[in-house]
């Protein structure tokens, strides 16, 4: 539809006896309708006065299309006039039984198989080249792009010593805790320094944590760590709760870990809470087992 406006200057009316608000429409040429022609083009020519009192010609061109109702056959049109019956007959206008979805639904094409394989093959290095991407590789569980090493849910489960020894320092990474390689000037806690008695304390702690770590799966999206704490602390002293959060979307990934001080408490929690209905989902609570090394 196009509207083209042409202004035609006309001499101002100086009829003193007329009020400003008076309708001057009778001075204008009548409205003209031309068409619709064989292409469905219809032209309407109208005249009116604008705010300054100038005469304006408005030409409106529109395309006339046959309405969809033309598809309905005679019987269907007749059925349209049938009176409503049942509950529909005395339905109040505000009942809103029929609504148009506010959400645009698309026919979601399934991803081609080739594209999917490529996606998973994409490693950290190629992510680094992309703008805005960070190379995030957990050194404990070797998972890429999910969490930092310091936030790894498995960090207590990993074999302690070799993690720091046989991996070369990755200086380029922006991980929070950089591996204390030899020659690095960063601070190294005494217990981890070379020559320190590693078996004295650290690994014992880890051993114990490993055994008392409980995995909770099938959590609802909005469960957070304080919620888990509240759920588990009645069973005994809890040293740590962790809920896996998707880094990209910020929503929970549906699982978490709870560490207990004593094994008995953990066992009681498992017995009690496995199969427990929490937030409309049924929890699965079990001993956390270390992931098989890749």
């Amino acid at each position: 539809m196009t509207i083209d406006t042409q202004q035609q200057k006309t001499s101002k009316f100086r009829w003193g006896e007329m009020d400003e608000d008076d309708d001057l429409d009778f001075l204008l040429p009548p409205k003209q309708v031309i068409g619709p022609d064989e292409n469905g083009l219809k032209t309407v020519v109208e005249y009116k006065f604008n705010d300054e009192g100038n005469r304006v010609k408005i030409t409106t061109k529109s395309r006339v299309r046959k309405l969809a109702s033309a598809r309905l056959n005679k019987r269907a049109i007749e059925r349209r006039s049938w009176p409503k019956f049942g509950e529909a007959a005395n339905e109040d206008a505000g009942s809103h039984l029929t609504m148009v979805s506010t959400e645009e639904i698309v026919l979601e094409r399934p991803k081609a198989l080739g594209a999917k394989a490529e996606d998973t093959k994409e490693d950290g290095l190629s992510q680094l080249t992309k703008p805005g991407a960070v190379l995030m590789v957990c050194r404990t569980c070797r998972k890429k792009g999910d969490h930092w090493t310091s936030k790894c849910p498995y960090k207590d489960l990993a074999a302690p010593a070799d993690v720091f020894e046989d991996k070369p320092p990755t200086g380029e990474t922006s991980t929070a805790s950089v591996a204390p390689g030899p020659g690095k000037s960063s601070y190294v806690p005494p217990s981890m320094r070379h020559g320190a008695d590693k078996n004295a304390m650290g690994s014992d702690m880890r051993r114990r944590n490993d055994e008392n770590s409980v995995r909770v799966t099938n959590l609802s999206e909005d469960t957070r760590e304080p919620d888990l704490m509240e759920l588990f602390h009645p069973f005994g002293a809890v040293t740590r709760v962790y809920v896996a959060i998707d880094q990209k979307t910020g929503v929970s990934r549906g699982f978490g870990f709870v560490n207990f001080v004593s094994r008995e408490d953990a066992q009681r929690a498992i017995n009690k809470l496995n199969g427990y209905g929490y937030d409309n989902l049924i929890l699965r609570v079990e001993w956390a087992t270390p992931r098989p090394t890749q």
Binding site: A76, R79, R80, H96, T98, E104, I105
Partner: peptide, 25 residues
């Protein structure tokens, strides 16, 4: 496409059927 939502039933749907002319459901 924006689907039209019809909430006329209080329980799960079991069957849908169009008439031959396709103007009624």
């Amino acid at each position: 496409m924006r689907p039209i939502l019809m909430k006329g039933h209080e329980r799960p749907l079991t069957f849908l059927r169009y008439n031959r002319d396709g103007d009624m459901l």
